[in-house]
Amino acid sequence: MKKTILPILLCLLLAACSDNSSRTEETSTTTDTLVAQSAQTAPTDIPGAMKSSMDKMTSELKSYQPSGDPDHDFASIMRIHHQGAVEMMQAYLPGAKDEMLKTMTQNGISKQQSEIGELGTFLNGHQPGTQKSSYGKDAAQMVTDMMVMETTPQDLDKAFATMMAPHHESAVHISQMFLNHGKDEKLKAMAKKIASEQQKETDELKKWLQEHP
């Protein structure tokens, strides 16, 4: 009886080992597949993704219908402008190599997201006035004109600096323009802050580009 049971137990043990081995192989294969799929879906054209963010912003500004109220138009246009910058910086950051540009990007995302919130709060509680100012039309047109680019460098850091310099510069111009038209004191204070900060960063970006031909 014992002689009969022993071979049966041995067969069961071998079958269990074989099943565990198959499961291990299946798990390993599944893991390898997920890793491969992740690599395939990871962004490979970050400069292209940044350019797409800018194109999306300019498209929204081209279709923007000015209210004629400078306060309302500044808040609306700057919110679109900031959102384009945030999306571009978020696309750039994972592959950023230059430490100065990386720090500028990290700080920029934080500051501009905060200002997007402030602009949204203003717009939610503000009804456009009856003014017939051309500020909104002129500001939107200025940004779209300044963001026209025929080519984009494939080097990631150069692509970022090349696109962000005119983007910041356009923010400076439309903020300065707004100071001559706006009435809301909080918005005017924000415009002064944006003009000052982004002029400084524009100068830094242009200097960086000169040093990295």
Results as ranks from 00 to 15, higher is better:
Lys3Tyr: 00
Lys3Met: 02
Leu6Glu: 09
Pro7Val: 13
Ile8Asp: 06
Leu9His: 01
Cys11Met: 13
Leu12Phe: 10
Leu13Thr: 14
Ala15Pro: 00
Ala15Asp: 02
Ala15His: 01
Ala16Asn: 09
Ser18Met: 07
Asp19Ala: 15
Asn20Pro: 00
Ser21Trp: 03
Glu25Gly: 05
Thr29Asp: 12
Leu34Phe: 09
Val35Lys: 13
Ala39Gln: 13
Pro43Tyr: 02
Pro43Arg: 14
Ile46Ala: 05
Ile46Arg: 13
Pro47Val: 06
Ser52Cys: 03
Ser52Val: 01
Thr58Phe: 01
Ser59Glu: 07
Lys62Ser: 10
Gln65Met: 11
Asp69Cys: 12
Asp71Cys: 14
Phe74Gln: 07
Ala75Ser: 05
Ile77Val: 13
Met78Cys: 06
Gln83Arg: 08
Met88Gly: 09
Ala96Lys: 05
Ala96Tyr: 01
Glu99Asp: 12
Met100Arg: 14
Lys102Ile: 01
Thr105Leu: 03
Thr105Met: 02
Gln106Asp: 05
Gln106Ser: 11
Ile109Arg: 08
Ser114Asp: 09
Ser114Leu: 06
Thr121Met: 09
Leu123Gly: 03
Gly125Asp: 10
His126Glu: 04
Pro128Tyr: 01
Gly129Arg: 08
Gly129His: 04
Thr130Cys: 01
Thr130Ser: 14
Lys132Met: 02
Ser133Gly: 11
Asp138Glu: 14
Ala140Leu: 09
Gln141Asp: 13
Met142Leu: 15
Val143Thr: 10
Thr144Lys: 04
Thr144Asp: 04
Thr151Phe: 04
Thr152Lys: 11
Asp155Glu: 12
Met163Leu: 15
Met163His: 04
Ala165Ser: 15
Ala171Thr: 04
Val172Met: 07
Val172Trp: 04
Val172Ser: 09
Ile174Arg: 10
Ile174Ala: 13
Met177Ile: 00
Ile194Asp: 02
Ile194Lys: 02
Glu197Met: 14
Thr202Gln: 09
Asp203Gln: 12
Leu205Ser: 04
Gln210Ala: 13
Gln210Asn: 14
Gln210Gly: 12
His212Trp: 02
